[in-house]
Amino acid sequence: MLQQIADFRDEAEELAGLLDTLPPAAWVAPTGFKAWTPADIVQHLHHSDRMAMASADGQEAFAAFRGRMQALRAGGLNTVQATREMLGDPRPPALLHLWREGVAALCERLSGLAPETRMPWAGPGMGLRMFATARQMETWSHGQAIWDLMARDRPPAAPRLRNIAEIGVRTYGWTFRNRGQEPPGAQPAVRLRASAETWEWPGEGGLVEGDATEFCQVAAQTRNIADTALRVEGEAARVWRALAQCFAGPPEMPPAPGTRVRSARPPG
């Protein structure tokens, strides 16, 4: 099994461990992410993993799966409603069980592919390693809203977080191309602290420096940069951090300061 696939599996299991502790009231409580509930988030992750399984089956299967979702959206349903329609609206604890089974099946399916396999997706296609990292990133980023809702500290940055930092760095150009813009300059250097390690990426367009978790939170739009202690030098770095988007799909603006932060106390 490629390390990136194992990291995705471990990311999902860590989140599942938190979900196992949620009381019934928490499953239906709105989080700071677009007021989605934990049930909405897990349904979304399960749907995305099923779409990833379709991608593993090839372009035709992927296009058919995505086409069904697009038809529901064109019929007037929002993302949450369309996902419920696609999945049959499973409820906890069955939902948690379905998602965990889906992750295990997807990891097994991806492990059977050649490492050089190209995977179709909603945005640009990806190689298998980056595809697995994208699944890890989505699981990690959506999970943040649940950790925040439950007023729980997330475990310290594990070595697998470097995968998400990597995708955050690599999507510098994508952040602007996705908006029909030219990058404001050369890619900035990035220097991140992760436990006892320092992770570095070269660049000439300034510098982004600070905590690895906070960098990944900003890249995945689970935090506004104003709610972090990241240090930014240079205009290109400043504009990038203000718009950073490391996920596929249409451009989205980062959350307003103070809106996606840890709750004072958990629901229930």
Rank of each mutant, 00 (worst) to 15 (best):
residue 99 W to P: 05
residue 20 D to G: 15
residue 31 T to W: 02
residue 174 W to I: 08
residue 189 A to C: 05
residue 124 P to A: 02
residue 2 L to E: 13
residue 158 A to D: 13
residue 33 F to H: 14
residue 202 P to Q: 07
residue 243 L to T: 13
residue 218 V to N: 04
residue 162 R to I: 11
residue 133 T to K: 01
residue 52 A to K: 04
residue 91 R to Q: 15
residue 196 A to E: 15
residue 64 A to Y: 11
residue 219 A to N: 09
residue 268 G to V: 13
residue 234 G to I: 10
residue 24 P to M: 10
residue 212 A to W: 03
residue 85 E to P: 04
residue 142 H to K: 04
residue 124 P to W: 00
residue 238 R to N: 12
residue 93 P to I: 01
residue 119 M to H: 00
residue 146 I to Q: 01
residue 82 A to C: 09
residue 24 P to W: 09
residue 144 Q to P: 00
residue 226 A to L: 13
residue 268 G to E: 11
residue 232 V to G: 02
residue 179 R to V: 02
residue 232 V to L: 07
residue 153 D to H: 08
residue 122 A to Q: 08
residue 216 C to N: 13
residue 235 E to H: 13
residue 171 T to G: 00
residue 169 V to W: 05
residue 121 W to E: 05
residue 247 F to V: 12
residue 236 A to V: 11
residue 11 E to I: 03
residue 19 L to R: 07
residue 209 E to Q: 14
residue 1 M to N: 14
residue 90 P to C: 01
residue 239 V to F: 14
residue 216 C to V: 15
residue 236 A to I: 10
residue 246 C to N: 08
residue 111 S to D: 12
residue 83 T to Y: 08
residue 134 A to W: 02
residue 119 M to K: 00
residue 170 R to N: 09
residue 214 E to C: 09
residue 194 A to L: 15
residue 70 Q to G: 10
residue 176 F to Q: 03
residue 102 G to S: 08
residue 65 F to K: 10
residue 250 P to I: 05
residue 228 T to E: 10
residue 79 T to F: 14
residue 78 N to K: 12
residue 234 G to R: 07
residue 121 W to F: 10
residue 72 L to R: 12
residue 157 A to S: 09
residue 39 A to V: 08
residue 25 A to R: 14
residue 203 G to P: 04
residue 41 I to Y: 03
residue 250 P to E: 06
residue 264 A to Y: 02
residue 160 R to W: 06
residue 216 C to K: 13
residue 127 G to F: 00
residue 18 L to A: 12
residue 62 F to Q: 01
residue 217 Q to C: 14
residue 187 Q to L: 11
residue 165 A to Q: 00
residue 110 L to Q: 07
residue 202 P to N: 06
residue 194 A to T: 14
residue 242 A to F: 13
residue 49 D to K: 04
residue 42 V to P: 05
residue 75 G to M: 06
residue 32 G to Q: 06
residue 240 W to M: 09
residue 188 P to C: 00
residue 56 A to T: 11
residue 157 A to R: 06
residue 68 R to E: 14
residue 222 T to R: 08
residue 142 H to L: 03
residue 5 I to Q: 11
residue 106 L to E: 05
residue 213 T to Q: 12
residue 169 V to L: 03
residue 233 E to A: 11
residue 99 W to R: 11
residue 166 E to F: 14
residue 162 R to K: 12
residue 139 T to R: 02
residue 257 P to A: 06
residue 207 L to R: 11
residue 92 P to E: 02
residue 72 L to Y: 10
residue 127 G to V: 01
